[in-house]
Design a protein around this nucleic acid. Structure first.
Lengths: 342, 342
DNA sequence: CTGGATTATGTTAGCGCTAACACGCCGCAC
DNA sequence: GTGCGGCGTGTTAGCGCTAACATAATCCAG
């Protein structure tokens, strides 16, 4: 210790300690402190120890703003997510966040009410934070449009969005998911299968519907009207009342919709799966414990998150953008699907 | 946005425009640009327009790191949240985030795997961002301990944590919630009521259990063993197998647990609510559509978020910390509870 | 032993912004 | 007219850090 502690406390009146303060205590220059902090090679062990002691003594923590300003690098990746407390969205978000941390970057998350202008607010703040790349969980066009308008000049990956809309698209092949579910029903012998979709302006709703349509066409079934849901149990419940006559199976755009639909069917005196088979999408953790256990489609959120961040990190390292990645979804068969009666 | 390589090289070369660049185009000093940006009063309208035109022309966006460095204020509030895709946590998080934005601050969110060291990682990054205050969604002691160890010198509000552990505690009075549910069952005539709790190291689990215990004592019921669940349907399902003999009602620590429990009961040939009444906690959006519709306890996440941010903003403005705030929970009665048959 | 690496450290100049002060210029009271 | 207090703008000095270069001490090949 060079000077008595009293002096130091007095001098540093209420200001957070700076590198200079650490340097003075350790009896070195501020640059040496910087080198210790950044793991520079040529530092004498003894010097390093003195500096580290001073850091501990002061409770010093380096000022990120200054560092970012000096380097014009923030080592952070922004994440823009829709502000809905839904399993799918939240799982994606958490997976992306974990993957970013694993890749040695810091995630900067903004959840925004995506239907409104607020989304852009949050995004602009992210941009102002000097993020080096951006992951967007972009469920519908109003988000991608907002991003387009900002003319973002950053490596960008879009989860959920179809390829070519913005940045690089990564995610599960939703259409293959509903296709699997529909084919499963066809294999069970169902011929009149209906789909309760998500809201039509959602990218995922469109591609999940497409998978259903494809499977129906391939099996040469009679196409029945699509019922537009809203991703919630409320919408699913309402759908039960407007099913086409003679329908023996329903492919729902997500698990919440299936929950509502099953409740609606039962209220109308129909039994699942005896009278009507039902499938969901997402495999929420409660799906096995619904009655009946829900046949649904599972996506590997962690894999998606990792793929997205990988793509970004690769581009930050200067590589070419890789091809579009579409991971496969997996069908989980439970008790809500069965062969049609008769 | 796959752009030709030439463009990218160009983009990499060109520096983001600075205030100085704007100033030169507008023919003023950089300080005048700063004044325009900060809405300073004494600027001639004509000058303002020239500056704004230059800003638009360059697509200038001010460097937050520099601004934060110069002012040592970031206008941002950190939010530390556990990384679980659960309705309660996510709803709290979104509510807090919205409230922060409403208050004119920017939310900086970190979701961290709270059981592990990663939590501290994320938190340290938040601190490095010069956040001015912190909201912690702190479900258990390992989080509050980590925060304690960092000796954070910031206005701090803890959602979920009991008062006195860290910072100012704000949230719903969980114990009153389970108390309401239990009293509802008592009023229906139940005498043998059991509780499936959350993991004992969770603050919420403890206070939800306390509310149950209180109600049991007040009604002079025989205390039955507490079954420790894990907040999930899996735990609830397991609990069904170990209920005490003759139990006619079960108070679950959350809705997921209730879902699992109901599935387990039904698998064992018991009917809800005919043989056993069940209550949940949280009122997840699907609760009305479970079969039977779940009687549960609802908390007003938006109010909590707003209260937390209000408290913080008030303290940032220099006021005293207000008293502990405990909002009331509300009982929502549906079909999963009924009088015992006997 | 001497010169050119090599190692360990210090010095200096910004990064882009804001705060504080400085400076003309104008209008108005006297 | 002179003085004086705004107004509108420019100038300057940091904020705390890193990068680049400068310097001093050490080492070893020749």
């Amino acid at each position: 210790m060079v000077e008595p502690a009293a002096n130091r406390t007095l001098a540093a009146t209420r200001r957070a300690p700076s590198m200079q303060d650490v340097a003075e205590i350790a009896g070195v220059s501020h640059q040496t402190v910087s080198r210790v902090l950044n793991g520079h090679a040529s530092i004498r062990p003894e010097t390093r120890e003195r500096v580290e002691a001073a850091i501990a003594e002061l409770g010093y923590r380096r000022n990120l703003a200054a560092r970012t300003l000096a380097t014009s690098r923030s080592r952070s990746i922004g994440v823009l997510s829709p502000a809905v407390p839904q399993f799918g969205v939240t799982s994606s978000l958490l997976a992306v966040e974990a993957a970013i941390r694993e890749a040695g970057y810091q995630p900067l998350v903004t959840a925004a009410a995506v239907e409104h202008a607020a989304s852009v607010d949050g995004l602009e703040f992210l941009l102002d934070q000097s993020i080096e790349a951006l992951v967007v969980i972009a469920p519908h066009a109003s988000v991608t449009r907002a991003i387009d308008e900002l003319k973002i000049d950053l490596p960008l990956v879009a989860l959920q969005a179809p390829d070519g809309v913005i940045g690089q698209a990564i995610g599960v092949d939703h259409s293959s998911g509903t296709r699997l579910a529909t084919e499963h029903l066809v294999a069970l012998g169902h011929r009149r299968i209906q789909h309760v979709s998500g809201p039509a302006h959602y990218f995922e709703a469109v591609s999940r519907r497409a998978g259903f349509d494809d499977a129906v066409r391939d099996a040469a079934l009679e196409p029945l009207p699509i019922i537009e849901g809203d991703w919630t149990a409320v919408g699913g419940h309402a759908a039960a009342a407007v099913l086409a006559p003679g329908v023996t199976a329903v492919v729902c755009a997500n698990d919440q919709t299936a929950i509502g639909l099953m409740a609606g069917l039962e209220a109308a005196g129909q039994r699942v799966p005896d009278d009507v088979s039902v499938t969901g999408f997402d495999d929420i953790p409660e799906a096995p414990y619904l009655r009946p256990g829900l046949t649904t489609v599972r996506q590997d959120f962690d894999a998606i998150g990792r793929a997205a961040v990988d793509a970004l990190v690769r581009r930050l390292a200067g590589s070419e953008a890789a091809a579009v990645e579409r991971l496969r979804a997996e069908l989980v068969v439970r008790a809500s699907t069965a062969p049609p009666r008769n």
